[in-house]
Computed example of a mutant assay.
Amino acid sequence: MKIEIDKVKKKQLDLSESEPASHFPALVEMEKAGECVFTAPVNAQVSAIWEYDHVRAMGKVESAVRLTCSRCLTEYDYPISSDFTIFYTESKGEELDEEVELSDEELISATYSGDEIDVDPEIAEQVALEVPYKPLCSESCRGLCPECGADLNAGECGCDRGGINVKMAALKKIKIEK
């Protein structure tokens, strides 16, 4: 998806696209790394307007992924939806040599050069930010039994999990004198 600067300076541009996740290199990398599998195309709607010396792009991205629960290893589908606003300013060719603290506005800013803005990297970034780092099929997921590996969400397995943790067994021998 591209925003043409000459057109946006004259009037608001409303753009939309629906692309498979394979269109976005960052999302392809997520799939290769095994983080998720995209089960729906990435749908994006963006409205761009010219304000003073920058372009304000407001939009929404939607998709869906299949994730593996980090507790019970069950696969489940997860919808993705994110609203965003990005301010695009023309690149002046200056680079920062030292660390600086960014303001809230600078955190949602990007630069462009030339006569059009490619919004695809920001669309992919918005989708990637919505994929959970530690996916859970539900907040109440009980995970797997550490003894036999049974899914505890399906019911108790009968293993005695209340025993002494071998890693902490040495602490039981410590005697504290008063």
Results as ranks from 00 to 15, higher is better:
Lys2Arg: 13
Lys11Leu: 02
Leu15Tyr: 09
Glu17Trp: 13
Glu17Val: 00
Glu19Gly: 00
Pro20Asp: 00
Pro20Trp: 07
His23Gly: 00
His23Tyr: 14
Phe24Arg: 01
Pro25Trp: 04
Ala26Trp: 10
Ala33His: 13
Ala33Met: 12
Cys36Gln: 07
Thr39Ala: 00
Ala40Asp: 09
Gln45Tyr: 13
Gln45Lys: 12
Ala48Ser: 10
Ile49Trp: 06
Glu51Thr: 06
Tyr52Ser: 01
Asp53Met: 04
Asp53Val: 07
Val55Thr: 08
Ala57Trp: 10
Ala57Gly: 07
Met58Ile: 07
Val61Arg: 02
Val61Asn: 02
Glu62His: 05
Glu62Met: 05
Ser63Ile: 02
Ser63Val: 01
Thr68Gln: 14
Thr68Asp: 10
Ser70Thr: 12
Thr74Glu: 15
Tyr76Leu: 05
Pro79Leu: 08
Ile80Cys: 04
Ser82Leu: 05
Phe87His: 11
Asp97Cys: 02
Val100Phe: 15
Val100Ala: 11
Glu101Lys: 13
Glu101Ala: 07
Leu102Trp: 15
Ser103Tyr: 15
Glu105Tyr: 08
Glu106Ser: 06
Glu106Arg: 08
Leu107Asn: 13
Ile108Tyr: 15
Ile108Gln: 14
Ser113His: 15
Asp115Thr: 10
Ile117Glu: 07
Asp118Pro: 09
Asp120Tyr: 13
Pro121Arg: 10
Ala124Leu: 04
Glu125Asp: 13
Leu129Phe: 14
Glu130Ser: 13
Glu130Pro: 07
Pro132Trp: 12
Tyr133His: 06
Tyr133Trp: 11
Tyr133Thr: 04
Leu136Thr: 04
Leu136Trp: 10
Cys137Thr: 04
Ser138Asn: 08
Glu139Thr: 09
Cys141Ser: 09
Cys141Met: 14
Arg142Ile: 05
Arg142Trp: 13
Asn153Phe: 11
Gly155Phe: 14
Gly155Arg: 07
Glu156His: 07
Gly158Glu: 02
Gly158Trp: 09
Asp160Trp: 12
Asp160Ala: 01
Ile164Arg: 03
Ile164Asn: 03
Asn165Ser: 01
Asn165Arg: 04
Val166Trp: 03
Lys167Asp: 03
Lys167Val: 00
Met168Ile: 03
Met168Gln: 04
Ala169Gln: 12
Leu171Phe: 15
Leu171Tyr: 14
Ile174Gln: 08
Glu177Phe: 08
Lys178Val: 00
